[in-house]
Amino acid sequence: MNIDLGGAAGPDGWPRPGCRCASCARLRTAGIGHEPARILIDGVPPAEHAHQEVPGGFDVRPSPGRRVLVARGPGARPEAVAGVVYDAVLLDLVGCPDHLGLLRRTGAVGAATEVLNVYADHRVPSPAELERRLGFWLPPRRGPHRTLLLGGARSGKSAEAELRLMGDPDVTYVATGPARGDDPEWNARVDAHRRRRPHWWATAETTELARELTSGAGAGSGALLVDGIGTWLTAAMDEAGAWEDPARVEPRLDELIAAWRSTAARVVAVTDEVGLSLVPTTPAGRAFRDVLGHLNQRLAAESEEAALVIAGRVTELS
């Protein structure tokens, strides 16, 4: 079976005619253009093969024993036919990357399924950024693999962590800062994170981070998103009574590093880059900054990947 994409952009192409957004302007300046998607399966458009409509797209049968799931258009989430493992899927990964995770979760996309992106457009900043994201989603990834994402407040580091795991079928979101009944602003932030992530992700609200890294998903059955290290350290220092004597929290830090090193999971963890913060005005604040900065260095040293997120832009750290 041969799938040919004569074009892979949205219906209006990329850049979109007359659009002044940064994404379209960037391509236009570079003299680059991507044509609207023209999908051919064995030389024939999908609609000319035997097929059935499914919510969000088409289940195509180009030849006996072959099945292809095709998204109807941008933003569409084609539903798989129950019990079918597709030979190929053509999906809007720019707009719906989490749909790939769901199809993997339900078994419709297997290890041998060819996954192709269609309908790319200015919803992503550039072709280079699209390729970066596809690198996280298209190849099925397994652990152990650790990624540490650093950034300042409201830098976009949590959104980047979620983005990296959208194609995974089994994700546990480890929230180290659970809701606080007496803090409406904090609870609103927690609720915003919950609404943003896929509904089938599991959630563990806990400060027992070392245990999560070495059991369940941490033992290799899925992926973990840890958000974040700073709130975990706050709880650990509280429990250890370490605000006046930071040495008291060292055993917890050693336990975390040992679990981070030995986990079998794919882990993406979010932490605060203390160098981007104001100099603390209290001894306790300075103690927290120093401990977190040292902990970040230890985690980064044990990570396959580390990146800095600023204003939603990502810089990989070698």
Rank of each mutant, 00 (worst) to 15 (best):
N2C: 01
I3F: 08
A8Q: 09
G18Q: 14
A22W: 06
R26P: 06
A30M: 10
G33T: 14
G33V: 12
P36R: 13
I39R: 12
L40R: 15
D42M: 02
A47D: 09
E53P: 00
D59K: 01
D59F: 00
G65K: 09
R66T: 13
R72W: 03
G73H: 05
G73Q: 02
V81Q: 08
V84M: 01
A88M: 11
A88F: 08
R105N: 05
T106H: 06
G110H: 06
N117F: 07
V118E: 10
D121G: 15
D121P: 06
H122M: 13
E129I: 14
F136Q: 08
P140C: 00
R141Q: 07
G143T: 06
T147L: 02
T147Y: 04
G151V: 04
G152D: 10
A159I: 00
T176D: 07
T176Q: 07
P178W: 11
A179W: 08
G181Y: 10
P184T: 00
R195W: 10
E205G: 08
L209P: 05
A217F: 01
G218I: 01
G220K: 07
S221Y: 04
S221G: 06
T231S: 13
T234N: 11
M237D: 00
M237K: 00
M237I: 01
D238Q: 04
A247E: 11
V249R: 02
R252H: 05
E255Q: 14
I257K: 00
A258D: 13
T263S: 14
A264R: 15
R266S: 02
T271W: 03
G275W: 12
V279Q: 05
T281R: 05
A287Y: 03
F288C: 12
L292P: 04
H294E: 15
L299E: 11
A301V: 02
A306N: 09
I310L: 13
A311W: 09
V314H: 13
